[in-house]
Computed example of a mutant assay.
Amino acid sequence: MAARNWSLPNIQDLSKEQERARLLPLDGCHLIVGGPGTGKSVLALLRTRRHHRDKGGQGYVFLVYNKLLLEASRELVDGAVNADSWIRRFKAMYKWALSQHCPVDGTPYRLDWPAINEAILNASAPKPPVTPFVIIDEGQDMPKDFYHALAELGFEHFYVVADQNQQITDEHSSLREIATELDIDPENRIELTENYRNCDSVARLAMAFCVEDLASPCVKLPTARPCVRAPVLVDYGPGCRWDYDTLVERLLKLADRDPAKLIGIITPNNKSRERWLKSLRERPVTLDHGRPRILTYASDSDGGDHRFSEGGIFVINAQSSKGLEFDTVFLADIDEYPYQLENKDWMDDLKRRFYVMVSRAREQVILLRQSGRNCPIEAILPVDQAILKRWR
């Protein structure tokens, strides 16, 4: 297995706006706003270094949206971080403060916020927080009630990084809601504007899906990192240049060409994820370096190889791609995304999802569509072939 160039930047390599965000006071509430590739997650992790102790208990906690991002964050700092997924840690915070289990709404992954807020309001003397400093990544994907409850439980010091344009969950917060619930002074909000991840053509395609909001503007296009290959939409199946099996072989050979690169295949649902995973693991093909690591992640499973520091192919669903980064990204079976063409809010949410998925790629992005199927997603795809080439 080949090691991949994947690590936190050195402090001296930060931009002026990033360094300003890094050096904000430890006390108080701060909001860092920026689009994909601006270094928000990097700054959140660098923030943990200012709090972290080699021995003894930690006075901070680093909260992320999902378990896969949690694993990736821990790997970047060699495990030296007190981190957790936000739902799991909130349940622990609530139980500590009120000495009772946190109310849930039907499933362990959906919290009953009305019951939570009522219990906090009626509590006589909640215990003070064990970790008074809270650092939050992808803060737009936690609900407003989450921030309200933390403030009511006595948490006073927050460092939140967020982008309103990347909301892809049913329960989310606007930047205004985060600032209001945490009483964040406008002077303690910093906006990051430069994209340091994507090469120019990938960034341009991502921008085509950006539903710009005045509260969270889209990032500037990078000018110093030209892409070697332009983004492309590939139709596969009957009547096309490639069928499914040929496409699987080409994917495996692409990974074999440079074993140190990590390829992300982002699928619309579990059925599609399992189909691609099975084919990549079983399709007979002659390779120079042997079959690459074929990884996957599902929210209802634990364990497995999820390392981002080595090359291979990682097959995940769209919902799990938040905050991650790959060298090349394939958006598989885009014809299978649910849609409501007459519902503007629905289609805007779909654009945000594609904005997030495309911007996971450092160097190249390829969209895959099955031929002969209805594909309403065409309605949100750019028609300019200078932005998205089309192969059939």
Rank of each mutant, 00 (worst) to 15 (best):
R225W: 03
L214V: 04
L214N: 08
S216I: 01
A230W: 08
V202T: 07
L214I: 05
P226C: 05
D243H: 14
R197A: 09
P217A: 05
L252R: 02
A206N: 07
C227Y: 00
G239T: 13
P222L: 03
K253H: 14
A206M: 00
R197P: 04
D213G: 03
T193F: 10
D213Y: 10
T223F: 13
P217N: 10
V228M: 07
L247S: 07
T246C: 05
Y196F: 15
C199G: 07
K220E: 01
N198A: 12
W242I: 10
D200N: 12
A208W: 12
P217T: 02
R197L: 02
C240P: 03
P238Y: 04
C240H: 04
P226L: 04
E191P: 08
G239M: 09
T246W: 10
E212Q: 13
A224M: 13
E212L: 01
A230Q: 15
E249M: 04
L214K: 11
N195R: 15
L214A: 03
R204W: 06
P226E: 09
R225K: 15
D235C: 12
D213H: 09
R241C: 04
A230Y: 14
L192H: 14
A230E: 14
N195W: 08
L251V: 09
T223E: 12
L192M: 09
A224E: 13
M207D: 14
L214Y: 05
Y196P: 09
L192D: 05
A215V: 02
A215H: 11
R197Q: 08
S201H: 02
K253T: 11
Y244H: 10
D235R: 15
L233I: 09
T246Y: 09
R229M: 10
P226D: 04
L221K: 14
E191I: 01
N195A: 08
D235P: 08
L214W: 02
K253V: 02
C240M: 12
S201K: 10
K253P: 02
A208I: 01
C227P: 01
R229V: 00
C240S: 13
R241H: 06
V202S: 12
K220H: 09
V234E: 11
S201W: 03
R241D: 05
A215P: 14
C240Y: 04
A208K: 13
D243W: 13
P238M: 01
V228S: 08
E249L: 03
A224F: 03
C218E: 05
D243F: 06
V219E: 02
R229D: 08
M207C: 09
V248W: 06
E249A: 06
V219H: 09
E194A: 06
P217F: 10
L192S: 00
V234N: 14
R229K: 14
A230T: 02
D245C: 01
L192P: 00
G239F: 10
Y236F: 14
L221E: 05
L214F: 00
S216F: 02
A203N: 11
R204S: 02
V219C: 06
M207A: 14
L205P: 15
P217K: 08
L233E: 08
P217G: 06
V232R: 15
D243K: 12
P238C: 06
V211H: 11
V232M: 04
V248S: 05
D235Y: 15
V202I: 04
L247T: 15
R204Y: 01
V202D: 06
V211K: 04
A230V: 02
G237E: 12
R241Y: 07
G237T: 14
